[in-house]
Amino acid sequence: MFEEIRWHGRGGQGAVTSAKILADAAHREGKFVQAFAFYGAERRGAPVETYTRISDCHVKRHSQIYNPTVVAVLDPALPKILYLKGLSKNSTLIVNSNKQMEFSSEIDCTKFWVDATQIAIDLKLRVSESYITNTTMTGAVAKATGLVKLESVIEALKNQLNERIWEKNIEAVKRGYNETHPYNNGGK
């Protein structure tokens, strides 16, 4: 097993935490993991990429992820060109959107959608002007890929986040997990 997950969000939405929670969860299931980001002059609102690697054995690679097996998009308004790069037909794409988004026929990977923004609105997960979708998306990735168990994600979340915000975010993970839908055409 060697999975490379790329997360796309905006500065302030918590994509770094998504990458860490998923890594932590996989590590709980005995995997070797890496969670990192491309760090630049991050500013709130600017598009950001973060990464999780999950493997059965020690990962030697330290470069960014160019051919992800999984792409998770935290913000539906991000330009597609940013997150579709490097996808292959074996990849899985999980987008925060309130319906199936349209993609050109060339994007023939397996696709899922989850309305993470609505979940964030329902749960009042908000920091300044941003709705926080990171934890919801970790639940969605767990469901869509089966890489980790829901319980592992919840345990990892507890390890990574302050106890004060556990409750809302655990709910977000659960809803993300339960409300993730494959595209009608079997995900394709």
Partner: peptide, 12 residues
Amino acid sequence: QDAFILSHTNAP
């Protein structure tokens, strides 16, 4: 250690 590549990468 290398900037970011290790300093900001989380691993076990």
